[in-house]
Structures are given as structure tokens and as C-alpha cells.
């Protein structure tokens, strides 16, 4: 195979060949609408960290016996906790909707002879499964089923 036309054109630059200013971001980088949405998405990680702490606390209460469990359950009725869980729910919906929107484009064009269904079908399937699982879990937690 023939060699490149300019074999040295991609050679690493010599140190200090040119003095360049370091990369910079626009001073208002965080204030563009898309970046605000992305930052909001990233910030949901903090909420899930806190949800993790609450879950650990509840597991410890469960291990400590019925009295501790009842006390922990009662503390969840605090308006602060309720507000936090509403915020968590909004955060989960936000992340799920974003994930569902991007999911079809991450599919490989084909796996062997199989091709993924069209994007709207994937979207619909994701929402159906999400709503279905949520409904089943809600009914189970309410004691209606199982």
C-alpha cells in the first residue's frame, strides 16, 4: 500500500513550537438552554445519592426491629421527606424521558439479520413497559395484588 502523501503532516508538535492560549469556555457557557438542561440532568445524581442514603437508613431500621422500623416509617411522613420524594419522582421522570428519547439512536443498525424496529416503536415499547411496571409495583405496594 502506498505511504501517506505527507508522512510528517500528523507528527506530534514540537514542544513550545507555538505559544497558544489555553482552551477557554465562553463565560456564559452554563447559561445556554441546552447546557442548563444537561447540568440539570447531571445534578439529578445528587438526588439519587440522597435517595441511597434514605434507603440505607430504612434498611438499618428494618434490621433494628419493628419499633425502629415504625419510627423510621413515621419520619417519612415529615413534609420535608414528602417534598424530597416528590422531587425524586420528578427527577426520575426527567431522566427517564431523556433516556427514552436518546435510546433509539444508540441501537446498532443490525444484529446479524435482525434490525431494530423504528424509533417510534422503541419509544412506545419503553413507555408501555415503564408505565406497566410502575402500575404493577404500585398495586403490589398498595396490597391490591400479591
Amino acid at each position: 500500500m502506498a505511504g501517506p502523501a505527507h508522512p510528517h503532516s500528523m507528527a506530534p508538535p514540537k514542544p513550545a513550537r507555538t505559544r497558544a492560549a489555553p482552551p477557554q469556555m465562553p463565560s456564559t457557557w452554563w447559561n445556554t438552554p441546552r447546557m442548563r438542561t444537561y447540568l440539570l440532568f447531571d445534578a439529578t445524581g445528587i438526588i439519587y445519592l440522597l435517595v441511597g442514603f434514605v434507603a440505607i437508613r430504612m434498611i438499618r431500621a428494618l434490621a433494628d426491629g419493628p419499633v425502629a422500623w415504625q419510627a423510621a416509617m413515621q419520619s417519612l411522613e415529615n413534609p420535608m421527606y414528602i417534598g424530597f420524594h416528590v422531587l425524586s419522582l420528578i427527577s426520575v421522570i426527567f431522566v427517564a424521558v431523556r433516556f427514552f428519547r436518546l435510546f433509539p439512536k444508540a441501537q446498532p443498525p443490525s444484529i446479524g439479520p435482525l434490525k431494530p424496529p423504528p424509533g417510534p416503536v422503541i419509544h412506545a415499547a419503553l413507555y408501555v413497559v415503564w408505565i406497566g411496571v410502575t402500575a404493577v409495583m404500585s398495586l403490589a405496594l398498595a396490597g391490591v395484588i400479591f
Binding site: 507555538t18 497558544a20 489555553p22 482552551p23 477557554q24 469556555m25 457557557w29
Partner: peptide, 16 residues
């Protein structure tokens, strides 16, 4: 109007 972000600036709006 600024040079492309995340690139070193060679001169004015020209990036490395």
C-alpha cells in the same frame, strides 16, 4: 464571537 471552546487558541479566532 469567540474561538471554538475546548481548543487552544493560536491567534484571535484561530484554534490549534
Amino acid at each position: 464571537i469567540e474561538p471554538l471552546a475546548n481548543f487552544p487558541i493560536v491567534r484571535d479566532l484561530v484554534v490549534e
